[in-house]
Design a protein around this nucleic acid. Structure first.
Length: 1066
RNA sequence: GGGCUCGUAGCUCAGCUUGGCUGGAGCGUUCGACUGAUAAUCGAAAGGUCAUGAGUUCGAAUCUCAUCGGGCCCA
């Protein structure tokens, strides 16, 4: 591989990929004696139901960065890929592709399930290919051969082991959960599916009354779903709101105060009287009589329970709708269900899979629940409990697929009762390092909730629940392994090696041990989060798991706080029945948004396809940009324009310094491996600039290392940027350039010292940058150093404390400030930087002279002046500063103005006159007087007005022939007058620069020695100035001779401060 | 609706713990300069109601409360 002369990131990327494809990097790392410390990484598996987009890339880059950083730090990282394959999204996609439009209700036969599962596998395979492609493009170091797949038999059997542990630790239970359910598709819907389908629909609006058991009064209750009266268990009041007793038609009604008037208007009752007002909380526990008990005998039985059909005070009750009193149906509402759970109210759910009432629902048995609405209203009326039936239009969720109105149903499910874990999960979570406080607090809060986790799903494509129930005696068999299933079965239609999925597992015939009847598997699969959360255990062997889990570092998007991060932790705690997380640290990553900060979504069309992005733009740049732009936990607004600006410049600079190094060091036949920094140090070849750079480098290395460890990757990238641009490129290279151009054999050692330093800095930069931008760093390393077959086999640099020199760094920073201030002064005097000047004066803080003088030679060259005076000043404003400067013989003149606000009261009516006199008074005179007496007195026709120092605004300006600039307490003054000698030197530099750029234009190498440089049409005056300087000019532009008459062929027109000239080189 | 969290220049952030000089830096922009590696670099300028409002205080970007807006999760 050869270092190209052209900077082309895409080409570099390709070259590196070609090279790496021929190298068995994994084997080289495995064989490397420096990298024996084996550590485990567990990949958070992407769900294979879509193509990767720009947002996915960020997470992958974090992972790969961590891999490379650790590999360089002597670790052998087990970095297996992993793929999440099951779950609802994949299944829905498969349904769509198979043309199933009515969901689960269309899938009734085993053949259909088999087809569905086959389709799911096809989808997974398709997207797997896309992801692999992107991983390749991105330079992910994943071991794809050892990738784990969440749907594989081995994985499922490991997952069952967790289930067994949960059962044995009494965490696994059966119970109810209220889910949104589509009666048409016969499927429960996830929250996100429900959220997709809100529309304005018309529903009945039923007001009915229920009598209190111990009072002669009625609650007026409102519902839009009359059928839920069948499952009514409580009515709710808001504890903090007022309710009123009103008398109308010889009855006492109880209604929320806020809605009273509106409600009465709505039911057209004008004649009513308010009796008293009470708080919602006062109703707590009051028993009422459900109007339809005669029709529903099972409900009547329920109502005998103490906590059934009572009023409850709950904060969520909204007093702004209906009557401010709501009825609660735990079997048909989520909030209702949660309250029932909290209050340990038994769930009455007489509804079957087809959403029809069962026999328990009495007279309503067999009716589809929503069809019962009408009859129930009728019955309420018959029982004389109807207040009003009307219609209402409101927002209500419809099934996104069938557009059918959803209903909420309590379904029998399996749960992990997390409260039974005690504080184990919290303790485990507290031991983890999260790098940032923000996600940590949230994570801990979530874990403290200890919500029961519903792990069962009524679907097909997932890890099946291996629990069988006898259809006759309800005896339960839990068979948590293939062997147990095989042993328990009396018929295995697919043989003992059947696939552990539906439909195959459902074909197995098992007879009840107790009554010898048929056993039926509980037709659930497990939550896909359960499936992925068991990855550390399921993707490893017992031995690996025991030794390598907890693993040091996991990372995933911030949305996974309640997702993967949570299930990983919970499942690991259950598995071990101990407070251990499977990870020692977890980095939550912020999401990627578009340029303007909008969420990337298909509907807005601002999604950036990962593959396209990586094809079009340099991968090194994309990776660097992701890490460099913002803190890992922050959201990142992705802008292609920004990507191509600063990050490009950084990589470009690094490349060009490598090129510069090669061009120069090759010319001197420098061998990196022979001549090192320690050699230069031993030989005493290091000057202050070298010491300074090396010192900065050590700090950069230290910084980057620490920051990477703390996941402050953006700061780490910025530390690299700072050193590369501000220290190496901006200062070190230009300062040492003249030394490198000097061909003198006697100064060769000095040149070698510089080469060694640049080489040392570049090699370390390559390594520091490698985790961010693997291709270019690999390329630069291989083409410039290449001691090993890959940069990954190198060792992460360690700061050499003996090279740190704080004193020199301080001096250098001061010098740079001084140079910058003088550059500004030059600007004011319109003097180019390359024109040498006679004199500079630099005023600094008291006590800093020593630091400044440490680098005085360098200061002279940098300032491009003959002499430079350094003056310490104690004062930095006003009179004191001025006097001090005068005392030091600095060529300044005082500038004095009046402090108008202060003198007004003193001069009063004489102000005008005073101003006149002031205008005619020499500033020097005022200063002298202030210095001597502390006052200056104006004599206005005998009226003496005495002003003191504070009445004046005192500043300074420089004398003619000087220019100055002041920043903070630093003042730079330069002489602007140029004599003939200075003019001619300036002219020389001007000409040299023009000839040099012409050389470049014509494609000559900087090191090529050319024959002739020609300059035509110079004015006589200029020619005279250059008389003695032709040799110097020839040296500067690297030619054998310079002439001022026509000898060359191709001339270029140029312009030098107004003189039209022609120049040529050949 | 609830929890967590963020809000300082066009962008990325520092300052907030412990209130106190004129709220800083880098990038980006504009103008000027420099440049024999560079889309590098140097100089100058423009750019801020420190989200809004109230409170505490002699004094608030900083402490307190409320509101608004963004994000994630949950409902």
């Amino acid at each position: 591989m050869e270092l190209s002369n052209e900077f082309n990131l895409k080409e570099i990327e390709q070259t590196t990929k070609n090279y790496l494809s021929k190298v068995d990097l994994k084997k080289l790392i495995d064989d490397s004696p420096d990298k024996m410390d084996k550590i485990m990484f567990i990949e958070g598996p992407p769900t294979l139901n879509g193509e990767p987009h720009a947002g996915h890339l960020r997470g992958r880059v974090f992972k790969d960065l961590w891999y490379r950083f650790n590999t360089l730090n002597g670790k052998n990282v087990v970095f297996n890929a992993g793929w999440d394959t099951q779950g609802l999204p994949v299944e829905l996609q498969a349904e769509k592709e198979l043309g199933i439009t009515n969901g689960k209700s269309e899938i009734t036969t085993q053949e259909q399930v088999e087809n569905l599962v086959a389709q799911c596998k096809k989808i997974v395979a398709k997207f797997h290919e896309k992801w692999i492609d992107v991983d390749k493009k991105l330079g992910m170091s994943f071991n794809q051969e050892n990738a784990y797949w969440t749907y594989k038999n081995e994985y499922i059997e490991r997952e069952w082991k967790l289930l067994r542990a949960a059962h044995e630790n009494n965490i696994l239970t059966e119970g109810y959960r209220v889910v949104a359910y589509c009666p048409s598709c016969q499927t429960s819907l996830s929250h996100s599916e429900v959220n997709q389908g809100y529309e304005i629909v018309q529903d009945p609006s039923l007001y009915y009354k229920v009598k209190l058991q111990d009072e002669d009064a009625y609650f007026i209750v409102w519902t839009t779903m009359p059928f839920t009266l069948v499952t009514d268990a409580m009515v709710g009041f808001n504890p903090d709101q007022e309710y009123v007793y009103v008398e109308t038609n010889n009855e006492v009604w109880i209604i929320g105060k806020t809605r009273l008037e509106e409600f009465m208007k709505e039911i057209k009752v004008e004649d009513y009287k308010t009796l008293k007002t009470v708080n919602g909380a006062d109703f707590e526990g009051k028993k009422y009589i459900h109007p339809l008990l005669d029709n529903i005998s099972a409900l009547e039985k329920m109502s005998k329970q103490e906590n059934y059909h009572i009023a409850v005070a709950e904060k969520f009750v909204d007093v702004n709708t209906g009557t401010g009193i709501v009825h609660l149906s735990p079997a048909n509402g989520e909030d209702d269900y949660n309250i029932a759970m909290k209050r340990k109210v038994e769930i009455f759910s007489p509804i079957d899979d087809e959403v029809k009432f069962t026999d328990e629902a009495g007279v309503y048995a067999g009716m589809f629940v929503r069809d019962a609405d009408e009859k129930i209203v009728q019955d309420v009326k018959e029982k004389n409990a109807l207040v009003k039936i009307g219609k209402i239009k409101h927002k209500y969720p419809l099934c996104w697929r069938s557009k059918h109105k959803l209903v909420w149903l309590a379904r029998r499910e399996y749960f992990y009762m997390l409260d039974r874990l005690g504080d184990k999960a919290i303790n485990a979570a507290q031991k983890v390092e999260y790098f940032f406080d923000q996600p940590k607090n949230r994570f801990l809060e979530i874990i403290k909730e200890k919500h029961p986790w519903c792990i069962s799903r009524e679907r097909f494509w997932g890890c099946p629940l291996p629990i069988w129930k006898c259809v006759e005696c309800e005896n339960i068999e839990r068979l948590f392994s293939r062997k147990e299933i095989v042993d328990a079965s009396d018929d295995l239609p697919d043989g003992p090696d059947f696939e552990l999925h539906r439909p195959w597992i459902d074909r197995i015939s098992i007879k009840c041990k107790k009554c010898n009847s048929k056993m039926q598997r509980e037709e659930f699969v497990l939550d896909t989060w359960h499936n992925s959360g068991v990855a550390p255990f399921a993707s490893l062997s017992d031995d690996e798991y025991g030794k390598k889990i907890p693993a040091p570092f996991f990372t995933e998007g911030i949305d996974q706080t309640r997702g993967w991060a949570y299930t990983l932790l919970i499942e690991n705690v259950i598995l071990n029945n101990k407070d251990t997380a499977p990870y020692e640290s977890f980095l939550f990553q912020g999401h990627v948004l578009d340029e303007k900060g909008n969420k990337m979504s298909k509907s807005t069309g601002n999604v950036l396809d990962a593959s396209d992005l990586l094809t079009e733009y340099p991968v090194d740049l994309v990776r660097f940009y992701f890490m460099w732009k913002s803190s890992p936990i922050e959201t990142l607004n992705f802008s292609v324009k920004e990507l191509m600006s600063r990050p490009y410049q950084i990589l470009s600079t690094l490349f060009h310094i490598h090129l510069y190094f090669r061009q120069n060091s090759q010319y001197d036949v420098f061998d990196i491996n022979q001549t090192t920094v320690s050699w230069a140090k031993e030989k005493g070849l290091l000057g202050p600039t070298d010491t300074w750079l090396l010192s900065k480098l050590q700090k950069t290395v230290d910084n980057c290392t620490e920051l990477n460890k703390k996941c402050k990757f953006h700061e780490s990238a910025k530390a690299v940027e700072d050193f590369l641009i501000n220290s190496l490129s901006q200062i070190y290279i230009p300062i040492t350039k003249p030394e490198l151009w000097d061909d003198d054999e006697s100064k060769k050692n000095r040149r070698f010292a510089i080469y060694a330093i640049i080489a040392n800095a570049l090699k370390q930069l390559d390594i520091l940058l490698h985790p961010f931008s693997p291709f270019i760093s690999e390329y630069l390393y291989l083409t410039t150093f290449g001691n090993k077959k890959s940069i990954l086999l190198e060792n992460w640099p360690k700061a050499d404390k003996s090279l740190v020199n704080g004193k020199i760094e301080e001096s250098f920073d001061m010098m740079n400030d001084a140079v910058s201030v003088c550059a500004a002064a030059r600007m004011k005097g319109k003097l180019k930087r390359r024109w040498p000047l006679n004199r500079a004066i630099i005023c600094i803080e008291k006590g800093e002279r020593e630091k400044m003088e440490l680098l005085s030679d360098l200061l002279h060259t940098q300032l491009n002046v003959h002499t430079c005076d350094i003056i310490e000043l104690e004062h930095h404003t006003g009179l004191a500063e001025l006097l001090e400067m005068k005392k030091a013989d600095i060529p300044i003149v005082p500038k004095v103005d009046l402090q108008r606000k202060a003198i007004g009261p003193k001069a009063k009516q004489d102000l005008g006159k005073l101003l006149e006199i002031f205008a005619e008074t020499d500033a020097e005179t005022i200063i002298e007087s202030l210095d001597k007496n502390g006052t200056f007195t104006f004599d206005i026709n005998g009226n003496k007005i005495s002003l003191d120092t504070d009445d004046f605004i005192i500043d300074f300006d420089v004398q003619e022939g000087f220019a100055f600039f002041k920043r903070d307490n630093l003042i730079g003054i330069i002489s602007t007058v140029r004599n003939e000698e200075l003019m001619s030197k300036g002219l020389l530099k001007d000409l040299a620069r023009r000839l040099q750029s012409l050389r470049k234009e014509r494609g000559y190498n900087p090191t090529d020695m050319l024959n002739t440089a020609s300059i035509l049409d110079l004015e006589q005056e200029s020619l005279d100035m250059l008389k003695d300087k032709t040799e110097e000019l020839a040296f500067l532009v690297r030619v054998k001779q310079v002439n001022f008459t026509k000898t060359c062929k191709e001339y270029k027109d140029d312009d030098i401060d107004g003189q039209k000239i022609k120049i040529a080189v050949e």
